[in-house]
């Protein structure tokens, strides 16, 4: 079984938002600013003229971190949120009761309500779309013009992501919460 994760060379991000569009298109995510599985956060320039901290203006693409210790899974009263065999955190819409506890417990604001099913939805690493068709990339990775994202198997030492994590310094978001996130930001 694979252990899927994603590395993000986030400093290459140009905030074109093609990833957001590709995700919505590929996964049939509803329109609307609040309905998104992935997003690009913008750090604004800090400081005051003339001491502007230009390097602080970065773009931080993000999404569900597919945590190894996912708080959203722990709090789910019906186990509708589960880990699949590849370590991807998914929601079984049939079992979701929309108590919204997971939305409150996720430290990354990665969950939203899909109005069609009135259940909680989130990034699936394209498990039920591209991966199910035998592709090896996610929609956001495939469309990225500056090659920010690298999706792959952490358990395969020869995978591109394993190589990147071996050779590049990286960090994860809010890892002090013990979530063991699997979105790695390369520095």
């Amino acid at each position: 079984m694979a252990n899927y994760a994603m590395a993000l060379d986030y400093k290459n991000c140009i905030n074109c938002k093609a990833c957001e569009v590709a995700c919505k298109e590929e996964n049939g995510v509803l329109k609307g600013a609040d309905k998104h599985r992935i997003w690009v956060g913008a750090n604004e320039v800090k400081g005051e003229w003339p001491n502007l901290d230009i390097v602080s203006a970065t773009f931080v693409p993000s999404q569900c971190q597919h945590c190894e210790e996912a708080p959203c899974q722990d709090v789910c009263p019906t186990n509708a949120t589960y880990y699949n065999e590849h370590g991807v955190v998914l929601v079984n819409a049939e079992m979701c009761i929309l108590c919204s506890y997971c939305m409150n417990a996720c430290p990354y604001d990665a969950r939203y309500v899909d109005d069609r099913t009135a259940t909680v939805d989130k990034c699936t690493f394209c498990s039920d779309t591209r991966l199910a068709r035998g592709e090896t990339t996610t929609a956001c990775q495939n469309t990225c013009p500056t090659k920010v994202r690298t999706f792959g198997d952490l358990d395969d030492p020869n995978s591109e992501i394993s190589e990147l994590l071996r050779t590049r310094e990286h960090f994860t978001l809010k890892s002090h919460l013990g979530t063991k996130p699997k979105l790695y930001y390369l520095t």
Binding site: P77, T78, A80, T119
Partner: peptide, 14 residues
Amino acid sequence: IGHPVTMMIYNVLT
């Protein structure tokens, strides 16, 4: 709760 009936079922099943 969005689905109270589902809640009663899966609270017991899973």
